[in-house]
């Protein structure tokens, strides 16, 4: 399968990248690890005439001291025992991304910004044309929930929920300089499978920062999928917290793989801080998360099953994080 021609740009610094991105306004894609973008390009999904390869921008590499460069390869995290020791929820999530070969090229930034997915979108040009193109590529209607306004493609990254549970911030470079924002603010909660991130034209994700307070949090990322490798999440639940004996000292919960953006559930977890988490309260938490999320029929497993699993996975993730805390 060949790629249609494009211009390939290889900036070597963040500033050069931002300038280039500004000059190409809207007519480019960033190329990070390529493990998501290039299959999509091979299937002629939303091609752009320019690719800005971030490979040579040294500042985007590396990890340490709570900073994760956007171009840091997932395999670097997977192989680092310090990640497992300091951020178990992140170690879980990294290890569950796709396959070892995808992790060898795939990057932190690429996973955070991975294209939303849908059975009707991740198909060849021939397949999509034969059904009628959809909202997300070349068309004007949704085949999942037939209407013309909103795209239901699912956010399918594994790292975002885990990093949200760690209170991570993202560092963004733009024409106006550097800025930081909470990771959840990177995603457009009011958007859909197409309008999904808040990144202005020309902005570049530089790094993720995990605050020192999140180091050593007990955590767990649990991923629902058919096979223990390859598959994108049909549900991803991330939990990080601290326990003081039986009492919850802090608790964060985020869920991906269900809606067009990952979601954090502070409103449900904050009230639990300071008291013991009984089985009943844990079950109530899990049920409420389940109630608030609405899977649609656009992945392999049926939506009612995925919904039910939200309850089970939330309960188990919290419980396993808590038990990790006790051990």
């Amino acid at each position: 399968m060949h790629l249609d021609p494009f211009a390939l740009h290889r900036p070597t610094s963040v500033d050069e990248t931002v300038r280039l991105a500004g000059s190409l306004a809207g007519r480019f894609d960033y190329l990070a690890g390529g493990t998501d973008l290039l299959p999509n390009y091979k299937m002629h999904l939303n091609l752009r005439p320019n690719l800005i390869a971030l490979e040579d921008v040294g500042e985007l590499r590396g990890h340490g001291a709570g900073r994760f460069g956007a171009m840091e390869r997932l395999a670097e995290l997977d192989d680092d025992p310090a990640i497992r020791a300091e951020y178990p929820v992140l170690a879980d999530a990294v290890g569950e991304v796709a396959t070892p070969l995808v992790r060898a090229s795939g990057t932190v930034g690429g996973n955070l910004l991975v294209e939303t997915r849908c059975f009707f979108f991740n198909q060849s040009y021939f397949w999509r044309e034969s059904l009628g193109f959809c909202l997300k590529a070349d068309g004007d209607r949704c085949h999942v929930v037939p209407q013309k306004e909103k795209c239901y493609a699912t956010f399918s990254g594994d790292l975002a929920p885990a990093l949200m549970a760690l209170d991570a911030e993202v560092e963004v470079a733009g024409p106006a300089g550097r800025s930081r924002r909470p990771l959840e603010a990177l995603y457009d909660a009011a958007g859909d499978g197409i309008r999904r991130v808040h990144l202005a034209p020309g902005e570049l994700l530089v790094a993720v920062h995990v605050p020192a307070a999140s180091r050593g949090l007990h955590g767990r990322y649990k991923k629902l999928r058919v096979r223990p490798s390859y598959d994108f999440p049909e549900l991803g639940v991330a939990v990080a917290g601290r326990w003081d004996g039986d009492r919850v000292a802090s608790l964060r919960l985020a869920v991906g793989g269900v809606e067009p953006h990952p979601r954090r559930f502070d409103a449900l977890t904050e009230p639990l801080v300071g008291s013991a988490l009984s089985d009943d309260r844990l079950r109530a938490l899990a049920d409420e998360v389940m109630r608030q999320l609405r899977p649609v029929h656009n992945t392999f497993l049926l939506p009612d099953y995925r919904k039910r699993m939200i309850g089970v996975y939330v309960r188990r993730a919290v419980d396993e994080a808590r038990r990790g805390s006790a051990s």
Partner: peptide, 18 residues
């Protein structure tokens, strides 16, 4: 799969220029 700088790499998802 090939090795790029010793790292296992999916050559079908790698731009040759890189």
């Amino acid at each position: 799969t090939v090795l790029v700088d010793g790292r296992p790499t999916l050559s079908c998802l790698t731009l040759a220029r890189l």
